[in-house]
Design a protein around this nucleic acid. Sequence first.
DNA 1: ATTACTTAGTGTAAAAAATACACACTATAT
DNA 2: ATATAGTGTGTATTTTTTACACTAAGTAAT
Lengths: 229, 229
Amino acid sequence: MEQILPHLDSVFSIDCVLFGFDGKELKILLIERNEEPFKDWWALPGNIVGPDESLDQSASRILYELTGLRGIYMEQYYAFGDPGRHPQGRVITLAYYALIRLGGDKELRPISTYAKRANWLPITDLPKLAFDHQKIYDKGLEKIKRRIKHQPIAFELLPEKFTLTQLQHVYELVLGKKLDKRNFRKKIISFGVLKELDEKQKGVSYRAATLYRFDKRKYAKLFGKEISF
Amino acid sequence: MEQILPHLDSVFSIDCVLFGFDGKELKILLIERNEEPFKDWWALPGNIVGPDESLDQSASRILYELTGLRGIYMEQYYAFGDPGRHPQGRVITLAYYALIRLGGDKELRPISTYAKRANWLPITDLPKLAFDHQKIYDKGLEKIKRRIKHQPIAFELLPEKFTLTQLQHVYELVLGKKLDKRNFRKKIISFGVLKELDEKQKGVSYRAATLYRFDKRKYAKLFGKEISF
DNA sequence: ATTACTTAGTGTAAAAAATACACACTATAT
DNA sequence: ATATAGTGTGTATTTTTTACACTAAGTAAT
């Protein structure tokens, strides 16, 4: 976010790559700018860090203002601060990513004046982005690719109850490659962090799959033992 | 680094955890502060980011001012910005780590006024640190622990020519645990990024070990294929 | 020159993990 | 009843990881 430029020596902002999964595609939330520079371009949502906010709080606020969502998994991953990255002066920005399950309809609230609109766009077909936001996005994707191999973050993109096929789908989208079904199931179940439910998937026109839930307690017990994909 | 506090809304600084290896111990460079707050406390070296510097440049400059060294491997790893982290106002700091082979004598130059002196202290016996620098250090150590498993950063801590025992020693110090000699050698050699030299270690009062060198070309060819410890 | 000392350097067997691979089952829709 | 679409399962092979102990080589002291 780069709209406000008070005359300070440097400005410190946060930009967010919000990854969303709707059951089919991996998307990110972009806003269409209504102000110069880069008017009418798509950009990552962001904002200036407030004087009494922590960095994490600031990121959560930005997310909340755009989507109305709270309690979302977010993580800081890199600071971008090249002197030339903003045409109007020095802006250092700290990038966060967030992982969001789409499909509820509470997402996307009225948004602030510097943006015309906000949209979830599939990562397979992104427009040109303002500023150095392409670089910021690239690094964000790289980060979650790495992290999903070692930390149980895939579940953040899924509803509380999900099927193994859905889970595999998330891994495939993030990693950008197909996985073997049997081996995937064997491995993910061997981690021992999934609870199989007595419930089946509903509303499908074929054999319904068993639902699972991520078991935070079991995961906590592993105590640092890392998952490894 | 937290000494200068012009009256801006927020100050953006860089703090560095400089890891050094002298062949025996893993150490970090700390400075003893000569100014309030935290006068006489040990702190991580740092400084304010200049208006026309990139972040990486700024980190390199700080390193250079303290040690006279250039061309050192440094990497940004986390931003700390809690509103309360600095008693005199808002200071957001970006942490870098660096990996340095000690033992040359060019290290440690005359240092700036806010510090009485600078010293390499073993990480096994660190004093209390100023500000939230313990937290910054902890996170830095965690980062290099993780990174040394996947990237060839251990070589940055060693002279150009080194023995396998020395290399193993670095891994053991960073990871904080003993490794099996035969398995270590098997694995590290199987990566195919070491070049065995015709030269032997000198000046030891026992059988001299073969020297190796990290082969950047071979590593470049692996092209993303990751090492895995 | 013998001996004591210290670190270098090496192989194998067993266990565990990763991979490749194909078909029968079940629910729904027509 | 039949077609359809996705669910769910096992095994054999290869690769990787682990555990483990002795001989070789050089230096220093006598």
